[in-house]
Write a protein that binds this DNA or RNA. Sequence first.
DNA 1: GGCGCTTGTTACATTTCGTAAGGAATCCGC
DNA 2: GCGGATTCCTTACGAAATGTAACAAGCGCC
Lengths: 241, 241
Amino acid sequence: MTSNTPSLPDQPLVAILDDEAEIRLMLSEALEEAGFRTQNFARATEFEAALKSTTPDVCLVDLGLPDKDGLALVHRLALESGAAIIIISGRAQVQDRVTGLELGADDYIIKPFDPAEVVARVRARLRRNRNTAKSSNTARFNGWTAHFDSYVLVDETGNETPFSHAEGEVLRLFLESPRRLISRARMQEILGGAAGESFDRAMDVRISRLRTKLREDPKNPRLIKTIYGAGYIFLGEVRWE
Amino acid sequence: MTSNTPSLPDQPLVAILDDEAEIRLMLSEALEEAGFRTQNFARATEFEAALKSTTPDVCLVDLGLPDKDGLALVHRLALESGAAIIIISGRAQVQDRVTGLELGADDYIIKPFDPAEVVARVRARLRRNRNTAKSSNTARFNGWTAHFDSYVLVDETGNETPFSHAEGEVLRLFLESPRRLISRARMQEILGGAAGESFDRAMDVRISRLRTKLREDPKNPRLIKTIYGAGYIFLGEVRWE
DNA sequence: GGCGCTTGTTACATTTCGTAAGGAATCCGC
DNA sequence: GCGGATTCCTTACGAAATGTAACAAGCGCC
């Protein structure tokens, strides 16, 4: 198997969402200086469109966006993406900070800010995330244990179920990005299939077979949830070890 | 070998290390009010001794300790313990914050602080570290409970009604901004549709279907109220958890 | 070759969700 | 109040998306 994943490069990707070009520039310069890749967006709609094809590691979001409610965006990001979210805002009240953090932001930086501190805080977020992102061969989730070296699934009673390579690819993809939406396009891209083909039922079948092995209730799947028209989302608490 | 069997996670434990009794009290009161367990330490030596027998989930560390170099302690904690580290310090210079974060702290709060913000930041750290599933994707409102992870609505008698992704988008939008007018334009933006001509009707239908699931009386909607010519307003006491 | 396993393909059932159409509610000017 | 126009609600329908069982092709192993 030589399917490397060139879509997951080494340098962490930081998305910057701010309507002021000056601030975008300041941030992206500081971050690139520090070795990160950056993506700049002036509008939430552009940002959301880009999210469908890229997966930033950290999102810097200005709350004072003209075209959308920033807090709602933060909340959705927190739920659907695995990225760390840092709010940048001119609103300095404690209540603003508290609500921002409660809605799922990982940090809250007040304008005016020092780029060096932003870089330090981005690093702090990545440090935590990277710990869990290191690849290993065993993952535990919701009573299950997946061994990717021996291709075996073990339930809580110790019962073993083998899984195939194709099933393992899908499972691994899910386990590496729990609780975040995985688009169908991205899945096909990473799983190396013929992308863009409209008649690719293979993906559905893989999911279906994986669901069977995980003993999902077809009417009410608990772990692998379908998002109609978008993709799938894996719900579950994953611990790699 | 530590016994890693946190099958039923207790309340998270927060260690507070500060030489001022007043601040310790303020923090521990706020944190316990928020449902955390706390441990208070006035000196680094006591704190380190306690670390041999307990494993806090978050450490709040004041840098201005008399008996040790706080930064060195932070660094050691970051390397050796899995706990999240939040520095609390009176030193407000950017350089102080940067070095604190670079040494492994997850957050840096400047004195004087508001206890509510500290609680929010502690929660933010725990959310990430535990990869918790139950944080912030469940909302309670007026007898209903909406589970956005399993896409299920539960009424007060425990009766379950599944809802689709599109319905969930609308519902989440409402729950994120209760008691506030939500214009149709904004709704269309957030729900991602290119503002089509007859796309308005799709929105109506979504609302209608959602109302049905919420068992709204068409003549007297209690939760989703229509503002003729403007948009909708969601009336309800929402609590995210 | 024959057997077992994996995996893609096909075919059909089911779900989701936008669109159309008719009716009800609301607003406005009189 | 009273048309009339606009806006909104609801039902029904159908196109598209998804689930999955059954079949077939490919592959390794004996």
